[in-house]
Structures are given as C-alpha cells and as structure tokens.
C-alpha cells in the first residue's frame, strides 16, 4: 500500500500533538497554572520562554503542551461518541428500513439543519460549562454525517452476496450487522472520525473562547486565545502560538483523514500489478 506525502505529513502532525499531550507532564519546563509570575508577564520568546509568556507571566510553550491534552481528549472522545451514535443509528436504519429508517432520516436532517456550534451552545447552557459537558455537547452534535455514511454503506453492502449468504446460513440480523456489514464499512467511518477530530478541536477552541469550555486557569488552546485577545498588540505571541497549534493540529487530522480515505479505498487496495 502506497501512502502519499499528505498522509505522512498528517500523521507526523497528529503524532506531534499526541506526543505533546502525553508527555506534557515531563517535557514542559514549567507548571501551566502555578508558575504564574506577573514579573515575567508579556515577555517575548527567548531561550527560557520559547514561545514567550502571557499576561499573567505563564509560559506559553508549557500551556500549549498541556492544552494538547484537552484537544486530544476532546477530539477522540467526542468522535468515539459520534461514531457510536452515528453507526448504530445509520446501520440499523439502512438494514431494517421502514419507519425506523424514516425516523432516523428525519432526525439526521434536523441535526444537519441546526448549526452544530449553536446546538453545542444550547447543550452547554443546560448542563453547564466544563470538560465533561464539552465532551457530551460535541459528542451529541456531529453524528449526522457518520450516520448518513453508515446508512448508505449499509444499503449497498446489504445487497452484496455475502450478506445474503449469511441470511441463508441462518445468521440473525444483529450478527449480520456486526460480522458482515460493520467490518466492511470501517474504512469510511474511520475517515469520518479522523476528519471530525479536526472540527471537534476547532469547536472546543470556539466554545472555550466563548468561555463555555475549559475553565481558567487550566489551559486549552481556545481559552488561551481568549486570554490573549486583550493583549494582542502588546504580546502577539500569546495568541499566535495557540492559534498556530490549533491550525497545525486541525491540518494534521484532516490530512490524516484524507490519506486514510485514499489508502482504505478498496479500489486502491485490491489493485495488484
């Protein structure tokens, strides 16, 4: 299987985010919260503070490393929730059809019609800010595309000979869905999840920017942007580096998703010279 440059770039960027998040505790030079020193506030990047310091004198580099933990958690957990909801609804709707299919389709269309950020805002307004509610809000809002893909894949896989064969061999519906259909649509679902991680990171940043996500003083890239907003002219690095981190990680997830799509495409996989 040949993977393109984009896939490797995406994989490297994603690996960098994972590396930063997992090892933040050991590689960060300072504490993200406690090492606040107003004497050091708004320092430009130098040998001690690689990315400079923010308005409260905290090291931006350290806070970005810790912020990666939040971004990763949000990206992965929200997409796991999204995929489980989307695949369950989409696969059963496609397989059983009938009124259940109509109901799921209606629900999907309603979800698609509501801007996901607004919906997440509403969820957050009900259950309050914080990381768990952020995960729930983002997990509940973005399953519609996964659901549509799962449904259409199921519809096409359902007519494959091996699914019919499983029916004649006496398999039950659930067993057919889990052994015959699900493994054969994992490719597109995985791609959707990876691409969704990028948008989840963006949504997290937006919600935190609005003060609904991660609560200060704990760092997330979005809340760092909020804090840096007032100082944008005095200390542009405090906004620049979190922004760059968001940009590069979202780019990484998207390139990885595209690369996976290409490599998991059965037409490209089965072609043997």
């Amino acid at each position: 299987m040949r993977l393109g440059f984009n896939f490797w770039l995406g994989a490297t960027l994603t690996a960098l985010v994972i590396f930063a998040g997992v090892l933040a505790h050991w590689i960060a030079p300072f504490d993200p919260v406690l090492d606040a020193d107003l004497m050091n506030s708004e320092l430009p990047p130098d040998a001690t503070f690689w990315f400079g310091t923010d308005g409260q004198g905290r090291d931006v580099y350290t806070r970005i490393l810790y912020g990666a933990q939040i971004s990763l958690t949000v990206g992965i957990v929200s997409q796991v929730i999204n995929s489980i909801i989307g695949v369950t609804l989409g696969m059963t709707a496609g397989y059983w059809g009938g009124w259940w299919d109509d109901l799921v389709n209606g629900l999907t269309n309603v979800m698609l019609a509501i801007p996901s950020l607004i919906f997440a805002l509403a969820v957050m307004a009900v259950i309050g800010p914080g990381l768990p509610s952020l995960l729930i809000a983002l997990g509940l809002t973005n399953w519609s595309w996964t659901c549509r893909i799962a449904r259409s894949s199921t519809l096409s896989l359902k007519s494959q000979g091996y699914v019919q064969a499983a029916q004649t061999l006496g398999y039950g519906d659930l067993r057919i869905m889990f052994t015959q259909i699900l493994p054969n649509m994992m490719g597109p679902i995985l791609v959707m999840a990876t691409l969704g991680m990028g948008s989840a990171v963006l949504s997290e940043a937006a919600l935190s920017f609005l003060g609904l996500g991660i609560q200060p003083p704990f760092p997330s890239w979005g809340s760092m942007l909020t804090d840096a907003r007032q100082l944008i002219q005095l200390a542009p690095w405090a906004a620049l580096f979190p922004g760059l981190a968001i940009f590069l990680s979202v780019l990484g997830f998207n390139l990885l998703g595209d690369g996976l799509r290409d490599s998991l495409d059965p037409h490209m996989r089965t072609r043997k010279p």
Partner: peptide, 22 residues
C-alpha cells in the same frame, strides 16, 4: 432462519461479491 438454513442453501453468481473480504 436457523432451521431453514439446514434445508436450503445458495451458490451465488458473482464470486467476487459473495465472499466477505474481511
């Protein structure tokens, strides 16, 4: 389905689509 499966089985036309690739 289980009892029926012991009575009747089927051989499909397209040998490429009738086996689960995974």
């Amino acid at each position: 389905r289980i009892d029926r499966a012991k009575a009747v089985q089927m051989v499909f036309q397209d040998p490429y689509a009738s086996l689960n690739p995974r």
